[in-house]
C-alpha cells in the first residue's frame, strides 16, 4: 500500500479520517502526558510534603480567588540565577497535594514557591494591605479587604471531603476540627499562614542528592 492510495482511502471515508486525525493529535499526549500521569515516581510525595491543613487550604483558596497566580509563579527552575534568588528548585514531589497546582506561567512579580519564612507575618500583613508602604517601587495592587473579611467556614468540610475522595490522607478528626480552626480568622490571616508554609515541602535529601547546591547558601 502506498502513501497515495492510503491518502485516497482516508479522504473518501469520513469516519476513518476523523479517527486518523484524533489518533495523530493524540500521539504527543500519549508520549508526554500519559506516562507523567501514570508514572509513580512523578506522583510520589517528597519526604516533607503533607496535606494542607484547614487554614492553609483556606489561604490557598484565597490566593487562587485573588488571582495571585496570575502574576506570581510557584516554580523555581533549575537554573543558577533562580536558585540563587529564590532557593532550591521546585520538584514534582512537592506538588502532589496541590489541586490544582499553582505553577503559573508568568512572573510580573517574583516567584513565591520559596517565600515561606523570608518575611515576617507583620511584613506580609502590611505588604498585602498596601504594598508600597514597605516597597516603594512595587507595582503590586493592595488587597485591603482581606484584613476586613472573615474567612468562610461553611464549606471547609466539603472541601476537605472532596480532597479525601481524591486520595488525600485527611483523617475524620481533621475534618471535624476544621471549622473550629478557622474561627475568628480574617482572610489575610489564612493567606499569610499559607504564604509562610510555601516551600516547606522541599526535602533536602531528595532522590537526586543535589540538595547541597540548592540551599542558595554558597
Amino acid at each position: 500500500m502506498s502513501g497515495m492510495s492510503l491518502h485516497k482511502k482516508l479522504e473518501e471515508n469520513a469516519g476513518l479520517l476523523i479517527f486518523g486525525i484524533l489518533f495523530v493529535s493524540a500521539i504527543g499526549g500519549l508520549v508526554q502526558v500519559l506516562p507523567a500521569i501514570l508514572q509513580d515516581s512523578l506522583n510520589t510525595a517528597s519526604a516533607n510534603a503533607r496535606v494542607y491543613n484547614a487554614v492553609e487550604l483556606t489561604g490557598r483558596d484565597i490566593y487562587i480567588r485573588e488571582g495571585c497566580s496570575v502574576c506570581h509563579s510557584q516554580q523555581v527552575r533549575p537554573l543558577i540565577a533562580e536558585v540563587e534568588r529564590y532557593g532550591p528548585y521546585s520538584q514534582a514531589g512537592e506538588f502532589v497535594y496541590d489541586r490544582p497546582f499553582l505553577w503559573g506561567s508568568k512572573r510580573t512579580g517574583p516567584d513565591l514557591h520559596r517565600i515561606g519564612g523570608k518575611y515576617s507575618d507583620d511584613w506580609h500583613r502590611i505588604h498585602l494591605i498596601d504594598p508600597r508602604s514597605v516597597v516603594p517601587r512595587s507595582i503590586m495592587p493592595g488587597y485591603p479587604w482581606l484584613a476586613e473579611r472573615d474567612v468562610k467556614t461553611s464549606d471547609i468540610q466539603a472541601k476537605l471531603r472532596a480532597l479525601q475522595l481524591l486520595g488525600h490522607p485527611y483523617e475524620q478528626a481533621d475534618i471535624d476540627a476544621a471549622p473550629g480552626q478557622l474561627e475568628g480568622m480574617k482572610e489575610i490571616d489564612a493567606l499569610i499562614v499559607y504564604l509562610q508554609m510555601l516551600g516547606s515541602f522541599h526535602a533536602e535529601d531528595s532522590a537526586d542528592g543535589h540538595s547541597e547546591n540548592q540551599s542558595g547558601a554558597h
Partner: peptide, 27 residues
C-alpha cells in the same frame, strides 16, 4: 527531581516515539 520514566512507561515512550518517526518517514 523525579526520575526519568522507567519500566513499562519507558518502553511505551520509546515504542510510540520511534514508531511515529518511522511512520512519518514512510509517509
Amino acid at each position: 527531581m523525579a526520575d526519568l520514566p522507567s519500566g513499562f512507561w519507558s518502553g511505551w515512550i520509546v515504542v510510540v516515539t520511534i514508531a511515529s518517526l518511522l511512520t512519518l518517514a514512510w509517509l
